[in-house]
Design a binder for these strands. Structure first.
Lengths: 239, 239
DNA sequence: TGTGACATATAAGTCTGACTTTTTGTCGGC
DNA sequence: GCCGACAAAAAGTCAGACTTATATGTCACA
Protein backbone atom coordinates (compact mmCIF):
# COMPACT_ATOMS: atom_id res chain seq x y z
CA UNK A 1 0.00 0.00 0.00
CA UNK A 2 2.51 2.62 1.06
CA UNK A 3 5.84 3.06 -0.68
CA UNK A 4 8.56 1.18 1.19
CA UNK A 5 11.04 3.99 0.83
CA UNK A 6 12.49 3.85 -2.64
CA UNK A 7 16.14 4.71 -2.53
CA UNK A 8 18.24 5.68 0.41
CA UNK A 9 16.71 9.13 0.70
CA UNK A 10 13.29 7.51 0.75
CA UNK A 11 14.20 5.41 3.74
CA UNK A 12 15.45 8.47 5.57
CA UNK A 13 12.16 10.21 4.81
CA UNK A 14 10.13 7.30 6.12
CA UNK A 15 11.94 7.70 9.38
CA UNK A 16 12.31 11.45 9.70
CA UNK A 17 8.93 12.46 8.25
CA UNK A 18 6.79 10.60 10.78
CA UNK A 19 9.03 11.84 13.59
CA UNK A 20 8.46 15.45 12.61
CA UNK A 21 4.72 15.14 12.00
CA UNK A 22 4.42 13.33 15.32
CA UNK A 23 5.84 16.39 17.00
CA UNK A 24 9.06 14.76 18.18
CA UNK A 25 10.81 17.95 17.17
CA UNK A 26 8.86 20.96 18.46
CA UNK A 27 8.41 23.88 16.06
CA UNK A 28 11.55 25.94 15.86
CA UNK A 29 13.86 23.01 16.56
CA UNK A 30 16.99 23.18 14.47
CA UNK A 31 18.61 20.16 12.88
CA UNK A 32 21.95 20.19 11.12
CA UNK A 33 22.25 18.39 7.82
CA UNK A 34 25.65 16.92 8.65
CA UNK A 35 24.48 15.61 11.98
CA UNK A 36 21.40 14.03 10.40
CA UNK A 37 23.56 12.45 7.72
CA UNK A 38 25.69 10.86 10.42
CA UNK A 39 22.69 9.76 12.44
CA UNK A 40 21.09 7.99 9.47
CA UNK A 41 24.45 6.79 8.16
CA UNK A 42 24.01 8.28 4.71
CA UNK A 43 26.05 10.74 2.70
CA UNK A 44 25.33 14.43 2.83
CA UNK A 45 23.97 14.44 -0.73
CA UNK A 46 21.33 11.88 0.19
CA UNK A 47 20.47 13.79 3.32
CA UNK A 48 20.17 17.01 1.35
CA UNK A 49 17.69 15.39 -1.01
CA UNK A 50 15.58 14.23 1.90
CA UNK A 51 15.65 17.70 3.45
CA UNK A 52 14.58 19.21 0.14
CA UNK A 53 11.52 16.98 0.06
CA UNK A 54 10.62 17.84 3.65
CA UNK A 55 11.07 21.47 2.69
CA UNK A 56 8.67 21.12 -0.24
CA UNK A 57 6.12 19.72 2.19
CA UNK A 58 6.64 22.83 4.32
CA UNK A 59 7.58 20.62 7.27
CA UNK A 60 10.96 22.31 7.63
CA UNK A 61 12.79 25.34 6.39
CA UNK A 62 16.46 25.27 5.51
CA UNK A 63 18.44 28.45 6.04
CA UNK A 64 22.12 29.21 5.80
CA UNK A 65 24.12 29.61 8.96
CA UNK A 66 21.21 28.41 11.08
CA UNK A 67 20.25 24.93 9.86
CA UNK A 68 17.06 23.04 9.15
CA UNK A 69 14.31 24.43 11.36
CA UNK A 70 11.03 22.62 11.96
CA UNK A 71 8.00 24.69 10.98
CA UNK A 72 4.85 24.95 13.10
CA UNK A 73 2.17 22.43 12.24
CA UNK A 74 -0.12 25.17 10.94
CA UNK A 75 2.19 25.63 7.94
CA UNK A 76 2.49 21.99 6.91
CA UNK A 77 1.11 20.85 3.56
CA UNK A 78 -1.56 18.73 5.20
CA UNK A 79 -2.99 17.72 1.83
CA UNK A 80 0.20 15.96 0.80
CA UNK A 81 -0.71 12.26 0.70
CA UNK A 82 2.57 11.34 2.32
CA UNK A 83 2.05 13.80 5.16
CA UNK A 84 -1.47 12.46 5.63
CA UNK A 85 -0.14 8.92 5.84
CA UNK A 86 2.55 9.91 8.32
CA UNK A 87 0.07 11.71 10.53
CA UNK A 88 -2.45 8.90 10.38
CA UNK A 89 0.27 6.54 11.52
CA UNK A 90 1.16 8.80 14.43
CA UNK A 91 -0.22 9.50 17.87
CA UNK A 92 -2.87 12.06 16.95
CA UNK A 93 -4.49 9.72 14.49
CA UNK A 94 -7.97 10.29 16.02
CA UNK A 95 -7.75 14.05 15.62
CA UNK A 96 -6.54 13.61 12.06
CA UNK A 97 -9.34 11.20 11.30
CA UNK A 98 -11.87 13.74 12.50
CA UNK A 99 -10.44 16.50 10.34
CA UNK A 100 -10.49 14.26 7.31
CA UNK A 101 -14.00 12.98 7.98
CA UNK A 102 -15.23 16.55 8.16
CA UNK A 103 -13.51 17.21 4.87
CA UNK A 104 -15.31 14.20 3.44
CA UNK A 105 -18.65 15.45 4.71
CA UNK A 106 -18.09 18.73 2.94
CA UNK A 107 -16.82 17.39 -0.36
CA UNK A 108 -18.62 14.14 -1.03
CA UNK A 109 -22.21 15.42 -1.19
CA UNK A 110 -21.25 18.03 -3.75
CA UNK A 111 -19.17 15.48 -5.67
CA UNK A 112 -22.12 13.06 -5.69
CA UNK A 113 -24.38 15.75 -7.10
CA UNK A 114 -21.92 16.39 -9.89
CA UNK A 115 -21.48 12.67 -10.45
CA UNK A 116 -25.21 12.30 -10.99
CA UNK A 117 -24.92 14.75 -13.88
CA UNK A 118 -21.59 13.63 -15.32
CA UNK A 119 -21.17 9.93 -14.67
CA UNK A 120 -20.62 7.78 -17.73
CA UNK A 121 -22.54 4.57 -18.30
CA UNK A 122 -19.43 2.65 -17.37
CA UNK A 123 -19.06 4.52 -14.11
CA UNK A 124 -22.70 3.87 -13.27
CA UNK A 125 -22.11 0.19 -13.84
CA UNK A 126 -19.04 0.20 -11.62
CA UNK A 127 -21.01 1.97 -8.94
CA UNK A 128 -23.78 -0.60 -9.00
CA UNK A 129 -21.21 -3.37 -8.91
CA UNK A 130 -19.60 -1.86 -5.85
CA UNK A 131 -22.96 -1.47 -4.14
CA UNK A 132 -23.75 -5.11 -4.83
CA UNK A 133 -20.39 -6.09 -3.37
CA UNK A 134 -21.15 -4.08 -0.26
CA UNK A 135 -24.52 -5.74 0.20
CA UNK A 136 -23.04 -9.18 -0.35
CA UNK A 137 -20.42 -8.65 2.34
CA UNK A 138 -22.49 -6.66 4.80
CA UNK A 139 -23.23 -9.60 7.08
CA UNK A 140 -21.17 -12.33 8.63
CA UNK A 141 -18.02 -10.49 9.65
CA UNK A 142 -16.61 -10.00 6.16
CA UNK A 143 -15.36 -6.55 7.03
CA UNK A 144 -12.30 -6.68 4.79
CA UNK A 145 -14.24 -7.51 1.65
CA UNK A 146 -16.88 -4.95 2.55
CA UNK A 147 -14.17 -2.32 2.94
CA UNK A 148 -12.73 -2.98 -0.51
CA UNK A 149 -16.06 -2.33 -2.17
CA UNK A 150 -16.79 0.65 0.05
CA UNK A 151 -13.50 2.29 -0.90
CA UNK A 152 -14.05 1.58 -4.58
CA UNK A 153 -17.57 2.99 -4.38
CA UNK A 154 -16.50 6.34 -3.01
CA UNK A 155 -13.57 6.52 -5.39
CA UNK A 156 -15.88 6.09 -8.37
CA UNK A 157 -18.17 8.83 -7.09
CA UNK A 158 -15.29 11.26 -6.69
CA UNK A 159 -13.88 10.42 -10.11
CA UNK A 160 -17.27 10.67 -11.77
CA UNK A 161 -17.72 14.18 -10.40
CA UNK A 162 -15.47 15.34 -13.22
CA UNK A 163 -13.63 17.69 -10.88
CA UNK A 164 -9.97 16.80 -10.51
CA UNK A 165 -9.70 18.33 -7.05
CA UNK A 166 -12.46 16.05 -5.84
CA UNK A 167 -11.07 13.08 -7.70
CA UNK A 168 -7.70 13.42 -6.02
CA UNK A 169 -9.35 12.97 -2.61
CA UNK A 170 -10.06 9.35 -3.48
CA UNK A 171 -6.93 8.19 -1.70
CA UNK A 172 -7.74 10.23 1.38
CA UNK A 173 -11.26 8.88 1.62
CA UNK A 174 -9.97 5.34 1.13
CA UNK A 175 -7.48 5.92 3.93
CA UNK A 176 -10.21 7.18 6.24
CA UNK A 177 -12.49 4.25 5.49
CA UNK A 178 -9.64 1.80 6.00
CA UNK A 179 -8.69 3.48 9.24
CA UNK A 180 -12.23 3.20 10.50
CA UNK A 181 -12.37 -0.52 9.83
CA UNK A 182 -8.91 -1.35 11.05
CA UNK A 183 -8.34 0.77 14.11
CA UNK A 184 -11.44 2.55 15.26
CA UNK A 185 -15.05 1.65 15.67
CA UNK A 186 -16.81 -0.95 13.56
CA UNK A 187 -15.98 -4.24 15.24
CA UNK A 188 -19.14 -5.82 13.98
CA UNK A 189 -21.07 -5.76 10.73
CA UNK A 190 -21.67 -2.36 9.14
CA UNK A 191 -24.85 -0.45 9.78
CA UNK A 192 -27.55 -1.91 7.48
CA UNK A 193 -28.96 1.55 6.98
CA UNK A 194 -25.63 2.77 5.60
CA UNK A 195 -25.57 -0.12 3.14
CA UNK A 196 -29.04 0.79 1.95
CA UNK A 197 -28.00 4.41 1.49
CA UNK A 198 -25.16 3.34 -0.77
CA UNK A 199 -27.48 1.25 -2.90
CA UNK A 200 -29.89 4.14 -3.21
CA UNK A 201 -27.05 6.49 -4.05
CA UNK A 202 -25.93 4.26 -6.91
CA UNK A 203 -29.53 4.37 -8.09
CA UNK A 204 -29.78 8.14 -7.87
CA UNK A 205 -26.55 8.64 -9.82
CA UNK A 206 -27.69 6.21 -12.48
CA UNK A 207 -30.95 8.10 -12.83
CA UNK A 208 -29.20 11.45 -12.91
CA UNK A 209 -31.03 12.70 -9.82
CA UNK A 210 -28.44 15.17 -8.53
CA UNK A 211 -30.43 16.49 -5.59
CA UNK A 212 -31.21 13.04 -4.28
CA UNK A 213 -27.60 11.91 -4.75
CA UNK A 214 -26.40 14.90 -2.80
CA UNK A 215 -28.88 14.36 0.01
CA UNK A 216 -28.14 10.64 0.27
CA UNK A 217 -24.43 11.30 0.44
CA UNK A 218 -25.02 13.88 3.12
CA UNK A 219 -26.76 11.20 5.17
CA UNK A 220 -23.88 8.81 4.63
CA UNK A 221 -21.28 11.30 5.78
CA UNK A 222 -23.41 12.36 8.73
CA UNK A 223 -23.29 8.74 9.77
CA UNK A 224 -19.52 8.80 9.54
CA UNK A 225 -19.38 11.93 11.68
CA UNK A 226 -21.62 10.34 14.28
CA UNK A 227 -19.39 7.29 14.47
CA UNK A 228 -16.53 9.56 15.48
CA UNK A 229 -18.70 11.39 18.02
CA UNK A 230 -18.34 14.61 16.12
CA UNK A 231 -22.10 14.74 15.74
CA UNK A 232 -24.49 13.48 18.36
CA UNK A 233 -27.24 11.16 17.00
CA UNK A 234 -29.72 14.03 17.11
CA UNK A 235 -27.84 16.07 14.55
CA UNK A 236 -26.51 18.70 16.93
CA UNK A 237 -22.74 18.87 17.42
CA UNK A 238 -21.43 16.61 20.15
CA UNK A 239 -20.18 18.19 23.40
CA UNK B 1 3.86 36.98 -3.34
CA UNK B 2 5.42 33.79 -4.69
CA UNK B 3 8.82 32.56 -3.63
CA UNK B 4 11.48 33.78 -6.08
CA UNK B 5 13.27 30.44 -6.17
CA UNK B 6 15.46 30.22 -3.11
CA UNK B 7 18.69 28.55 -3.97
CA UNK B 8 19.82 27.20 -7.28
CA UNK B 9 17.54 24.19 -7.15
CA UNK B 10 14.65 26.53 -6.48
CA UNK B 11 15.33 28.45 -9.64
CA UNK B 12 15.43 25.23 -11.63
CA UNK B 13 12.08 24.28 -10.14
CA UNK B 14 10.53 27.61 -11.02
CA UNK B 15 11.42 26.90 -14.60
CA UNK B 16 10.86 23.17 -14.90
CA UNK B 17 7.75 22.90 -12.72
CA UNK B 18 5.58 25.27 -14.76
CA UNK B 19 6.80 23.62 -17.96
CA UNK B 20 5.67 20.22 -16.78
CA UNK B 21 2.32 21.35 -15.37
CA UNK B 22 1.71 23.26 -18.58
CA UNK B 23 2.01 20.00 -20.46
CA UNK B 24 5.16 20.92 -22.38
CA UNK B 25 6.33 17.38 -21.69
CA UNK B 26 3.52 14.92 -22.44
CA UNK B 27 2.98 12.10 -19.94
CA UNK B 28 5.55 9.39 -20.39
CA UNK B 29 8.24 11.75 -21.65
CA UNK B 30 11.63 10.83 -20.31
CA UNK B 31 14.18 13.37 -19.18
CA UNK B 32 17.75 12.56 -18.20
CA UNK B 33 19.14 14.15 -15.09
CA UNK B 34 22.53 14.82 -16.69
CA UNK B 35 20.99 16.48 -19.70
CA UNK B 36 18.77 18.65 -17.51
CA UNK B 37 21.76 19.62 -15.40
CA UNK B 38 23.57 20.76 -18.53
CA UNK B 39 20.54 22.59 -19.87
CA UNK B 40 20.07 24.56 -16.65
CA UNK B 41 23.81 24.91 -16.13
CA UNK B 42 23.81 23.47 -12.64
CA UNK B 43 25.64 20.58 -11.07
CA UNK B 44 24.05 17.15 -10.97
CA UNK B 45 23.57 17.34 -7.19
CA UNK B 46 21.45 20.46 -7.57
CA UNK B 47 19.50 18.88 -10.40
CA UNK B 48 18.92 15.76 -8.34
CA UNK B 49 17.45 17.84 -5.53
CA UNK B 50 15.07 19.51 -7.95
CA UNK B 51 14.01 16.16 -9.38
CA UNK B 52 13.39 14.83 -5.89
CA UNK B 53 11.01 17.69 -5.19
CA UNK B 54 9.16 17.16 -8.47
CA UNK B 55 8.98 13.50 -7.54
CA UNK B 56 7.44 14.29 -4.16
CA UNK B 57 4.80 16.29 -6.01
CA UNK B 58 4.13 13.23 -8.14
CA UNK B 59 4.85 15.23 -11.26
CA UNK B 60 7.61 12.84 -12.32
CA UNK B 61 8.96 9.44 -11.44
CA UNK B 62 12.65 8.66 -11.40
CA UNK B 63 13.71 5.12 -12.28
CA UNK B 64 17.08 3.55 -12.85
CA UNK B 65 18.20 2.81 -16.35
CA UNK B 66 15.26 4.71 -17.82
CA UNK B 67 15.37 8.28 -16.51
CA UNK B 68 12.92 10.81 -15.15
CA UNK B 69 9.50 10.13 -16.65
CA UNK B 70 6.66 12.63 -16.54
CA UNK B 71 3.54 11.26 -14.88
CA UNK B 72 0.01 11.78 -16.25
CA UNK B 73 -1.78 14.81 -14.85
CA UNK B 74 -4.28 12.62 -13.02
CA UNK B 75 -1.53 11.59 -10.60
CA UNK B 76 -0.20 15.04 -9.75
CA UNK B 77 -0.52 16.36 -6.20
CA UNK B 78 -2.93 19.08 -7.24
CA UNK B 79 -3.30 20.31 -3.67
CA UNK B 80 0.34 21.28 -3.43
CA UNK B 81 0.33 25.08 -3.23
CA UNK B 82 3.28 25.28 -5.56
CA UNK B 83 1.60 23.07 -8.14
CA UNK B 84 -1.54 25.18 -7.83
CA UNK B 85 0.46 28.33 -8.45
CA UNK B 86 2.24 26.84 -11.43
CA UNK B 87 -1.00 25.69 -12.99
CA UNK B 88 -2.73 28.99 -12.35
CA UNK B 89 0.12 30.72 -14.13
CA UNK B 90 -0.21 28.40 -17.12
CA UNK B 91 -2.44 28.12 -20.11
CA UNK B 92 -5.30 26.18 -18.57
CA UNK B 93 -5.79 28.76 -15.89
CA UNK B 94 -9.54 29.03 -16.57
CA UNK B 95 -10.11 25.30 -16.14
CA UNK B 96 -8.05 25.37 -12.95
CA UNK B 97 -10.01 28.33 -11.64
CA UNK B 98 -13.25 26.44 -12.19
CA UNK B 99 -12.02 23.38 -10.32
CA UNK B 100 -10.89 25.49 -7.41
CA UNK B 101 -14.08 27.54 -7.31
CA UNK B 102 -16.09 24.35 -7.12
CA UNK B 103 -13.87 23.23 -4.28
CA UNK B 104 -14.61 26.53 -2.56
CA UNK B 105 -18.33 26.08 -3.02
CA UNK B 106 -18.14 22.70 -1.33
CA UNK B 107 -15.89 23.64 1.56
CA UNK B 108 -16.72 27.19 2.55
CA UNK B 109 -20.38 26.75 3.52
CA UNK B 110 -19.47 23.92 5.87
CA UNK B 111 -16.54 25.90 7.21
CA UNK B 112 -18.77 28.90 7.84
CA UNK B 113 -21.20 26.75 9.77
CA UNK B 114 -18.39 25.50 11.96
CA UNK B 115 -17.02 29.02 12.32
CA UNK B 116 -20.37 30.19 13.67
CA UNK B 117 -19.98 27.65 16.47
CA UNK B 118 -16.27 27.97 17.12
CA UNK B 119 -15.19 31.52 16.29
CA UNK B 120 -13.50 33.40 19.09
CA UNK B 121 -14.48 36.94 19.99
CA UNK B 122 -11.31 38.15 18.35
CA UNK B 123 -12.10 36.32 15.13
CA UNK B 124 -15.62 37.80 15.11
CA UNK B 125 -14.10 41.24 15.46
CA UNK B 126 -11.68 40.61 12.59
CA UNK B 127 -14.55 39.38 10.48
CA UNK B 128 -16.60 42.49 11.10
CA UNK B 129 -13.58 44.64 10.37
CA UNK B 130 -13.06 42.89 7.05
CA UNK B 131 -16.72 43.30 6.15
CA UNK B 132 -16.50 46.99 6.91
CA UNK B 133 -13.42 47.24 4.72
CA UNK B 134 -15.29 45.54 1.91
CA UNK B 135 -18.23 47.91 2.17
CA UNK B 136 -15.94 50.93 2.30
CA UNK B 137 -14.17 49.91 -0.91
CA UNK B 138 -17.12 48.47 -2.79
CA UNK B 139 -17.66 51.57 -4.91
CA UNK B 140 -15.46 53.82 -6.94
CA UNK B 141 -13.10 51.35 -8.59
CA UNK B 142 -11.11 50.48 -5.52
CA UNK B 143 -10.88 46.85 -6.54
CA UNK B 144 -7.44 46.25 -5.04
CA UNK B 145 -8.40 47.42 -1.57
CA UNK B 146 -11.66 45.52 -1.79
CA UNK B 147 -9.76 42.36 -2.73
CA UNK B 148 -7.48 42.61 0.30
CA UNK B 149 -10.42 42.67 2.67
CA UNK B 150 -12.26 39.97 0.74
CA UNK B 151 -9.28 37.62 0.97
CA UNK B 152 -8.82 38.36 4.67
CA UNK B 153 -12.52 37.77 5.30
CA UNK B 154 -12.56 34.29 3.81
CA UNK B 155 -9.29 33.40 5.47
CA UNK B 156 -10.71 34.25 8.88
CA UNK B 157 -13.79 32.12 8.21
CA UNK B 158 -11.67 29.13 7.23
CA UNK B 159 -9.38 29.54 10.22
CA UNK B 160 -12.29 30.01 12.61
CA UNK B 161 -13.79 26.71 11.48
CA UNK B 162 -11.29 25.01 13.74
CA UNK B 163 -10.58 22.39 11.09
CA UNK B 164 -7.00 22.44 9.90
CA UNK B 165 -7.85 20.97 6.50
CA UNK B 166 -10.24 23.85 5.89
CA UNK B 167 -7.83 26.39 7.31
CA UNK B 168 -5.09 25.34 4.91
CA UNK B 169 -7.32 26.25 1.97
CA UNK B 170 -6.99 29.90 2.88
CA UNK B 171 -4.17 30.39 0.42
CA UNK B 172 -6.09 28.66 -2.35
CA UNK B 173 -9.18 30.77 -1.83
CA UNK B 174 -7.05 33.91 -1.73
CA UNK B 175 -5.44 32.88 -5.00
CA UNK B 176 -8.83 32.30 -6.60
CA UNK B 177 -10.17 35.65 -5.43
CA UNK B 178 -7.05 37.42 -6.62
CA UNK B 179 -7.24 35.68 -9.96
CA UNK B 180 -10.82 36.75 -10.40
CA UNK B 181 -9.99 40.39 -9.78
CA UNK B 182 -6.78 40.47 -11.78
CA UNK B 183 -7.39 38.36 -14.84
CA UNK B 184 -10.98 37.34 -15.24
CA UNK B 185 -14.30 39.01 -14.84
CA UNK B 186 -14.94 41.89 -12.46
CA UNK B 187 -13.81 44.94 -14.35
CA UNK B 188 -16.18 47.15 -12.45
CA UNK B 189 -17.27 47.44 -8.84
CA UNK B 190 -18.26 44.22 -7.07
CA UNK B 191 -21.86 43.08 -6.94
CA UNK B 192 -23.55 45.03 -4.12
CA UNK B 193 -25.55 41.95 -3.26
CA UNK B 194 -22.35 39.99 -2.63
CA UNK B 195 -21.12 42.72 -0.32
CA UNK B 196 -24.34 42.59 1.65
CA UNK B 197 -24.05 38.82 1.94
CA UNK B 198 -20.61 39.17 3.48
CA UNK B 199 -21.87 41.68 6.03
CA UNK B 200 -24.73 39.38 6.93
CA UNK B 201 -22.36 36.43 7.17
CA UNK B 202 -20.18 38.27 9.66
CA UNK B 203 -23.36 38.94 11.61
CA UNK B 204 -24.47 35.33 11.54
CA UNK B 205 -21.10 34.09 12.74
CA UNK B 206 -21.04 36.64 15.52
CA UNK B 207 -24.49 35.52 16.63
CA UNK B 208 -23.53 31.85 16.40
CA UNK B 209 -26.23 31.12 13.83
CA UNK B 210 -24.61 28.16 12.07
CA UNK B 211 -27.43 27.38 9.67
CA UNK B 212 -27.71 30.95 8.47
CA UNK B 213 -23.94 31.26 8.12
CA UNK B 214 -23.88 28.12 6.01
CA UNK B 215 -26.73 29.28 3.81
CA UNK B 216 -25.28 32.75 3.29
CA UNK B 217 -21.93 31.30 2.32
CA UNK B 218 -23.68 28.97 -0.08
CA UNK B 219 -25.20 32.02 -1.78
CA UNK B 220 -21.82 33.72 -1.93
CA UNK B 221 -20.14 30.75 -3.57
CA UNK B 222 -23.04 30.24 -5.96
CA UNK B 223 -22.36 33.78 -7.10
CA UNK B 224 -18.74 32.87 -7.70
CA UNK B 225 -19.78 29.84 -9.75
CA UNK B 226 -22.14 31.95 -11.83
CA UNK B 227 -19.38 34.44 -12.58
CA UNK B 228 -17.39 31.62 -14.15
CA UNK B 229 -20.42 30.39 -16.10
CA UNK B 230 -20.37 27.11 -14.24
CA UNK B 231 -23.87 27.82 -13.03
CA UNK B 232 -26.48 29.64 -15.07
CA UNK B 233 -28.27 32.45 -13.19
CA UNK B 234 -31.30 30.22 -12.69
CA UNK B 235 -29.41 27.74 -10.55
CA UNK B 236 -29.24 24.97 -13.10
CA UNK B 237 -25.80 23.98 -14.42
CA UNK B 238 -24.67 25.95 -17.41
CA UNK B 239 -24.57 24.24 -20.82
C1' DT C 1 10.14 -19.73 -35.15
C1' DG C 2 9.78 -18.97 -30.49
C1' DT C 3 11.83 -18.98 -25.82
C1' DG C 4 14.89 -18.95 -22.33
C1' DA C 5 19.27 -17.61 -20.06
C1' DC C 6 22.93 -14.52 -20.22
C1' DA C 7 25.72 -10.48 -21.31
C1' DT C 8 26.03 -5.54 -21.86
C1' DA C 9 25.18 -0.89 -21.91
C1' DT C 10 22.92 2.86 -19.62
C1' DA C 11 21.31 6.12 -16.44
C1' DA C 12 20.21 6.78 -11.78
C1' DG C 13 22.13 6.35 -7.22
C1' DT C 14 25.81 7.06 -3.84
C1' DC C 15 29.92 8.83 -1.67
C1' DT C 16 33.65 12.03 -0.78
C1' DG C 17 36.34 16.09 -0.45
C1' DA C 18 37.13 20.69 -1.55
C1' DC C 19 35.43 25.09 -2.16
C1' DT C 20 31.88 29.20 -1.95
C1' DT C 21 28.35 32.04 0.01
C1' DT C 22 25.42 33.86 3.24
C1' DT C 23 24.16 34.93 7.72
C1' DT C 24 24.77 35.96 12.40
C1' DG C 25 26.97 36.79 16.66
C1' DT C 26 30.58 39.27 18.66
C1' DC C 27 33.98 42.48 19.62
C1' DG C 28 36.16 46.79 19.41
C1' DG C 29 35.91 51.67 18.54
C1' DC C 30 33.35 55.74 18.62
C1' DG D 1 24.72 52.63 23.83
C1' DC D 2 25.18 52.33 18.86
C1' DC D 3 27.47 50.93 14.65
C1' DG D 4 30.56 48.71 11.60
C1' DA D 5 34.12 45.31 10.77
C1' DC D 6 35.45 40.66 11.43
C1' DA D 7 35.22 35.71 12.10
C1' DA D 8 32.88 31.42 12.55
C1' DA D 9 29.28 28.32 11.25
C1' DA D 10 26.30 25.99 8.43
C1' DA D 11 24.10 25.41 4.11
C1' DG D 12 25.02 25.55 -0.74
C1' DT D 13 27.61 24.22 -4.82
C1' DC D 14 30.61 21.61 -7.68
C1' DA D 15 33.37 17.82 -9.79
C1' DG D 16 34.80 13.19 -10.18
C1' DA D 17 34.83 8.44 -9.22
C1' DC D 18 32.41 4.54 -8.20
C1' DT D 19 28.13 1.30 -7.50
C1' DT D 20 23.79 -0.71 -8.68
C1' DA D 21 19.76 -1.86 -10.83
C1' DT D 22 17.56 -2.89 -15.05
C1' DA D 23 15.94 -2.58 -19.83
C1' DT D 24 17.30 -4.51 -23.89
C1' DG D 25 19.67 -7.02 -27.13
C1' DT D 26 22.06 -11.51 -28.27
C1' DC D 27 22.60 -16.12 -28.85
C1' DA D 28 22.00 -20.89 -28.08
C1' DC D 29 18.70 -24.30 -27.82
C1' DA D 30 14.23 -26.46 -28.33
Amino acid sequence: MSTPGRGLHGRVLESLGPAITAGDYPPGSVLRTDELAQRFEVSRSVMREAVRVLESMHLVESRRRVGVTVRPAAEWNVYDPQVIRWRLAGADRPRQLRSLTMLRSAIEPVAAGLAARNATAEQCAELTECAIGMVANSRGHQLEKYLVHDMAFHRVILNASGNEMFARLGDVVAEVLAGRTHHEVMFEDPDPEAVTLHVQLAEAVREGDADRAEELTREITIGALQELDILAPGGRPAP
